[in-house]
Design a binder for these strands. Structure first.
Length: 198
DNA sequence: AATCCTGCCAACCGCGAAGCG
DNA sequence: GCGCTTCGCGGTTGGCAGGAT
């Protein structure tokens, strides 16, 4: 699939490139998008893309913003607790990545999806039977101290959120800002934003 | 030292749902 | 009620980096 996207933007004709840019985002584009949203907020993405002067589709802008540029995006290792939650929620909801992501503040559906496919699913495929009762069997869990099934006394502090229940302790608005670690390069952009915005 | 393999991640695409005139 | 536009989601792909041989 994605035949025209296969070569990313590298081989786009100059004509196409003038129309719509594809492929990896440049730092310049990131800055434009960040500054524009910081000033005007998120709006209609297609309009936003045009108004900001980005030669990107609204879709592309949205994806870039949600998965990478948003100030509260958390990056870095999935913690054992998060892994546990992901597995639990996946057992419950299946591939509803966006729904699962909402229970993991700062994590994106794309990240969780990638995590699942590359780590958990692969493990499962290689004959390591998925054990939802004890997700710590999966890799990355070697450092985990948590043991036992979720049904015994060693149940981790995570609880399964009540879906769509704002009163549930795990219900988190999309923009919770509790992440103070695992920040990535874009933090520099945000640090710089003051003088870009002025 | 060179090559091959594997894992990870960013980005794109297609489709369905929702919103609006 | 209908058609169009936009959004959001899930699946998939391609490139890069690091490790293994």
């Amino acid at each position: 699939m994605g035949e025209e996207g296969n070569n990313m933007d590298k081989r786009l004709s100059s004509n196409q490139e003038a129309e719509v840019r594809k492929g990896p985002w440049t730092m310049e584009e990131d800055l434009i998008l960040i500054n524009y949203i910081a000033t005007h907020g998120e709006g209609v993405w297609n309009t936003l893309a045009r108004s900001a002067g980005l030669k990107r589709t609204g879709k592309s802008c949205r994806l870039r913003w949600l998965n990478y540029l948003r100030p509260d995006v958390r990056r870095g290792n999935i913690t054992p607790e998060e892994q546990f939650l992901i597995m639990e929620l996946h057992a419950r909801w299946g591939n509803r990545w966006s729904k699962i992501a909402r229970q993991l503040p700062g994590r994106t559906d794309n990240e969780i999806k990638n995590y699942w496919r590359t780590r958990i699913q692969k493990k499962n495929k290689h004959g390591d039977p998925m054990d939802y009762q004890n997700p710590m069997h999966s890799d990355g869990a070697s450092t985990s101290q948590t043991s036992g099934s979720m049904q015994d006394a060693a149940t981790p502090t995570y609880t399964i959120p009540q879906m769509d229940n704002p009163h549930d302790p795990f219900y988190a608005p999309p923009f919770s800002n509790d992440c103070t670690d695992n920040f990535w390069g874009v933090e520099d952009f945000w640090a710089m934003h003051s003088f870009h915005g002025d």
